Amino acid sequence: MKRLLLVLTFLLAAATAHAQTATVVLQWLPQAQFAGFYVAKEKGFYAERDVDLTLISGGPDVITSELLESRRATFATMFLSTGIQRRAAGIPIVNIAQLAQHSGMMLLAKKSSGINGIFDLYNRKVGLWANEFQLQPRALFRRSHIDVKVVPTGSSLDLFLLGGVDATSAMTYNEYHRLYTYGIDFKDLTVFHFADIGLDFPEDGLYALEETARRQPELCRKVVEATMEGWAYAFKHKDEALQYVQKEMESAHIPFALSHQRWMLDEIEKLFEFRDGSLSIELREADYDFTVRALRENGFIRTSPAYADFRKEVLQ
């Protein structure tokens, strides 16, 4: 028995020594938005590929591109608009997997405020999140020639609920449903879903430094493959996936509401695309060019990174 334990210990040590270490920083606090990563970790999909992966939670004080640039993280998740903005600012990051092919961002208003259409937003107070999260609303205002009074907001919906703003930023998978749990019926809201009004920018993608993609292509391939397997499993086994989400949230001392996280996972699935039964991680050049153009026209970037430099294929 002792000899068997020694052999097993040796084999485990050898396997650990052989495994490549890597970290992925996620752009927000633990929630079902990242269920695929949690599943891939818990089910051993990274370990099966000899990758010893650590997940780092983000949050309001975590800028994932900074952790990537300083090499405190090997990989990071970001919206496509964020990735382009950071690349244009000189950070040598590349997109190695475009997970969310569509946008879940929206503007919400109470019908009781008299806002029923886009032009009703004229001269109204609109709560917007910071930085690149203002891209789509500002593109909408610019396209529609609407002047609004922008009010900076955080993740809280209090300002909207108390009437401090007439409309507010939201995500289909988060704030939209949170308002429902607060007692506001969906039918009492006017919804401007950017995916439905010609401003459908891809969101969550997986990024690495250009140097990492060049020097460690096998590591990039393994992490992308395992992550894809994690998401495919999460969508097919949602009850199990939500158990892992709950574990992550409770570990971070974040209240877990099953109904809300289930809604989030269902809505996140709508932002992904499956082709021939497999999860698509393609970054379409047309989507990329459209997002770059919107960033430039609204003053978020001054230069346009070339698609060929920004996108790196790691699956061969």
Rank of each mutant, 00 (worst) to 15 (best):
E210A: 14
V24C: 03
E218W: 12
T190K: 08
F79A: 12
F75K: 03
Y176C: 02
F10R: 02
I184M: 06
G198Y: 00
P60E: 13
Y288K: 04
Y173V: 01
D147Y: 10
R215H: 14
A130S: 15
G44N: 00
A40N: 02
G163R: 09
S65R: 13
Q33L: 06
S70E: 14
L258T: 10
T168H: 01
Q246A: 07
L8K: 13
L265D: 03
R3I: 15
P152E: 01
L157D: 03
S70Q: 11
A100R: 08
H253S: 10
L53M: 07
F186E: 13
N95W: 00
T212M: 06
E66W: 13
N131W: 11
T190W: 09
R178E: 14
G154E: 03
G104N: 12
E211A: 14
Q20P: 01
L26H: 10
T82F: 09
F194R: 04
R138A: 01
G277V: 09
D204L: 13
G104I: 08
F310L: 10
L135K: 02
E282K: 13
Q134R: 14
G299P: 03
K110S: 10
Q243S: 11
L271A: 12
T82Q: 14
L26V: 11
N116D: 12
I115E: 03
F201Q: 07
F192L: 07
